[in-house]
Simulated assay, not measured.
Amino acid sequence: MDDLASAHRGATKRFIFLLLPNYSAMTFAMAMETLKTANRMAMGTPFSCVVCSEGGVPVTDSLGAEYPIDHGLEDVSRDDIIVICSGADVRKNCTPAVLQWLRKCARQGCEIAGLYTGAWVMAEAGLIGEEAITIHWENRNSFAEKFPDVELSDYTYTVRNKRYSTAGGTAVIDLLLTLISEAESPELANLVADQLMYTNIRVLQHSARVQVAERIGMRHPKLSEILALMETNLEEPLRPGDLAKTVNISTRQLERLFRRYLSATPKKYYMDMRLQRAQHLLLQTSMSVTEVSVACGFNSSSHFSRLFRARYGMSPHRLRGEPEKG
């Protein structure tokens, strides 16, 4: 804990929450609680939160309650993160004043996030470029019809080019943990997740392997290169001999490296990577089990399901809370 406090970068990152009428109370509360927990675990104030609304007037959330408003649509700093909190009826809340303010924030270089249906407001303001964005599943069809040139992601949250989005639910915690990790440290993000009893840290699960590869790369660049090859060839896995040949070592040397540094065979480690990627896709996308199995290099969905069950103690369908297939 002391190490985390001393490692705090000094400058406070400000999150400005824009509340629109009938915004998702759960989404907003989870975002605020995650940042509040981060400050407590960091033993400082790496993050501050400001709540605004059009005209600075109270806004009723999806539960019929009101949260105190700090101010209206005032000037911001380029280092601020604007967080749009909206709800199911987002279309009628894209007022000219809100859209104009968001465009001004974007021109100043602010990062902008849309929670739940906030991506709709971002698209209406013309703030989305080539980056893919996500939105709550109930709004996907109408969004695609309204904004045919905007790419919709199957993921529950997106992070790219200072534009962030979530599809609602607990995905907001995933996004905030990512932003905490980038602004401060992965260690702080993990501490926050522990405090929130959020053991299913999907983004950190996905990035943990990269962190391991980077640490190993400091000691053995060849192995780091091999792990990177594996990571980028999950849909069509490479054979151990091909991996070894690519980095100019023998297959026997390859096996020795994996035993020494990873305590596993190349085949087993590769399989774990593919199954972990499958878990990531099952939790974060709407892809079918068959599509996930193909994306992770399995020719048979039944074979994939057996391996997944052996690795995680449950079938892919059960992980999603879906009925088991016969």
Score class of each variant (00 low, 15 high):
128 I>N: 01
142 S>G: 03
256 R>P: 00
11 A>W: 04
281 L>I: 07
308 F>D: 02
156 T>N: 14
222 K>G: 08
178 T>G: 03
212 V>M: 12
296 C>R: 02
318 R>C: 03
307 L>D: 05
177 L>I: 09
28 F>Y: 14
210 V>Y: 14
136 H>C: 11
183 A>N: 13
17 F>G: 01
221 P>M: 06
264 A>N: 09
170 T>D: 06
325 K>M: 09
50 V>R: 13
184 E>V: 15
124 E>T: 12
226 I>A: 04
147 F>S: 03
78 R>I: 00
273 M>Q: 14
311 R>D: 07
289 V>W: 00
219 R>I: 12
211 Q>M: 12
236 E>C: 04
145 E>L: 11
268 K>G: 05
217 G>N: 05
31 A>I: 04
120 W>P: 02
127 L>I: 11
217 G>F: 02
304 F>S: 01
21 P>N: 06
262 L>I: 08
325 K>Q: 12
291 E>F: 02
187 E>C: 00
100 Q>V: 11
59 V>F: 04
118 G>E: 07
78 R>Q: 09
116 Y>M: 05
171 A>T: 14
33 E>M: 11
267 K>E: 15
37 T>L: 12
172 V>T: 14
134 T>G: 09
242 D>K: 13
124 E>R: 11
205 Q>H: 14
214 E>W: 03
7 A>C: 07
105 C>Y: 03
67 Y>H: 09
145 E>W: 02
63 L>W: 12
133 I>T: 15
194 D>M: 10
205 Q>C: 11
170 T>A: 09
307 L>P: 01
314 M>A: 10
45 T>E: 15
75 D>H: 10
19 L>W: 01
112 I>N: 03
173 I>V: 15
92 K>Q: 15
220 H>C: 14
211 Q>G: 09
324 E>P: 00
211 Q>T: 09
106 A>S: 15
73 L>I: 14
95 T>G: 05
121 V>M: 04
38 A>Q: 05
306 R>N: 08
4 L>C: 07
121 V>Q: 01
203 V>K: 06
82 I>Q: 01
235 E>P: 00
72 G>H: 08
164 Y>L: 10
182 E>P: 00
229 L>E: 12
313 G>T: 10
249 I>V: 15
148 P>C: 08
178 T>F: 12
263 S>H: 14
230 M>T: 11
310 A>N: 14
318 R>I: 06
89 D>Y: 10
161 N>R: 13
249 I>Y: 05
227 L>H: 05
20 L>K: 01
149 D>R: 13
95 T>N: 06
143 F>S: 00
263 S>V: 07
138 E>S: 15
19 L>Y: 04
90 V>P: 01
21 P>H: 07
237 P>D: 08
7 A>I: 10
272 D>K: 13
313 G>H: 10
31 A>C: 13
159 V>N: 07
311 R>K: 15
264 A>K: 05
177 L>F: 05
324 E>S: 09
213 A>R: 14
246 T>S: 13
12 T>R: 08
196 L>P: 02
97 A>H: 13
250 S>N: 04
123 A>I: 06
12 T>H: 04
210 V>S: 13
181 S>E: 08
207 S>W: 04
113 A>E: 03
154 D>A: 11
195 Q>R: 13
195 Q>L: 10
258 F>Q: 02
313 G>N: 09
248 N>G: 02
166 T>A: 07
190 N>D: 12
94 C>E: 12
301 S>W: 02
179 L>M: 15
54 E>C: 05
69 I>Y: 04
236 E>S: 10
49 C>S: 12
